[in-house]
Design a protein around this nucleic acid. Sequence first.
DNA 1: AAGTAGTTGATAATTATTACTGTGTCAAGC
DNA 2: GCTTGACACAGTAATAATTATCAACTACTT
Lengths: 218, 218
Amino acid sequence: MQKLLRMTHQREVILDEIKKSTTHPTADELYERIKKKLPRISLATVYRNLEIMSESGLINKLEISGRQKRFDWDLEQHDHIYCVQCHRVDNIDLADKKDVTLPPEQNRGYMVSGCRVEFYGICPKCSNASIKKKKGERKKMACKSKCGSKELSEKQREVLEALAKCKDACGSKDIAAATSLEPKQVSCQITALKKKGLVESPVRCKYTITGDGKNALS
Amino acid sequence: MQKLLRMTHQREVILDEIKKSTTHPTADELYERIKKKLPRISLATVYRNLEIMSESGLINKLEISGRQKRFDWDLEQHDHIYCVQCHRVDNIDLADKKDVTLPPEQNRGYMVSGCRVEFYGICPKCSNASIKKKKGERKKMACKSKCGSKELSEKQREVLEALAKCKDACGSKDIAAATSLEPKQVSCQITALKKKGLVESPVRCKYTITGDGKNALS
DNA sequence: AAGTAGTTGATAATTATTACTGTGTCAAGC
DNA sequence: GCTTGACACAGTAATAATTATCAACTACTT
């Protein structure tokens, strides 16, 4: 039953990289770092070995908020604090935790095997970043955004360029006239552009290009 | 800033379906149920509206272990218990929780906005199921498995069929001879089949088909 | 009644992860 | 020293869950 683990060079490097990290890296964060040492390693190898090593108890796979799995060299049971903005995860040491137990009449028939406590909030890096942003300091987001600024579609670019030429806010009909698009289609594109933050609406049904929008064009 | 929400029929039905559920459904569970009432609804609409409604505070999006997001009509802050086998999530009422606070010197500079407590274990349904399984009662898994028994590939089926014809355990060379495959390829396929539990190795380098393996062929 | 913001269904795209495949490497046994 | 079989690897395809895009539609507001 016990599977024997061969300590290959790749595994050594992966394990080493986890042990070095103070945070709890995701598979692709690790992959990026490992690639510098082993440029030919495959992402699949990283995933495979993280899975294997956590199964055999060399490392810990965290069950934590967020989409990506995270790994930890610290095998002791401990708890975490999670940044809702950049999704980083830090350790916490919770002395009070011994009090958190589930009264037997509350367990709903579950065979309880453990308990996780997870605080959440905004990490210092992110709160600094948002202060800077308010000051008008334009800065590339330090953290991966869930839905990054995507490429503009053909039509979106057309609408945005037309808006860039207007001095004042203008309605979608004006834009339709300035482009080859139907008024109806313009409204669709504006919705998308607003969502991306490239366009805003100072008054109902009038639109202007934002600073971000101008940057997106150049 | 405040976006106005139009109460469409689709939204009403989605909301209604969440309110009716005692558990914490995932988007696609909801979609399956809603399709019965609105057969033409799109999965995207369900996802879109769950997101919108949770943003505007009509429902709650749970941050919980597991790959899929889950939604809850109960806006009160409460905690959960999670089945590591079938991933169902139940509510718990944790009176002791007030004790769990993060000492300020522990917060690592985070602006803490809340705390989740999550117990985990095996739910009653799953522990019953595994007892039945031990008795030899073959039964379709009640719960979605993370990596369900996949279709057999062409080569895997070939290997498995060859194995089914052997009375005793046989080596990969025997199998290679019985099929059109190279010995090297056979070993790859056997590894995959073993992982699926369709083949086992009573002695080193000898293989037999398992009960599951026979079922997989029929 | 007209115009427009918001909404929908269908589908494409994306993200994170896992599976497959052919080849390579290692250790044990002949 | 050669063979055998187990384990690993890189590269790539496939999958699952979610999100984005877009043209058509709908319900408010004026």
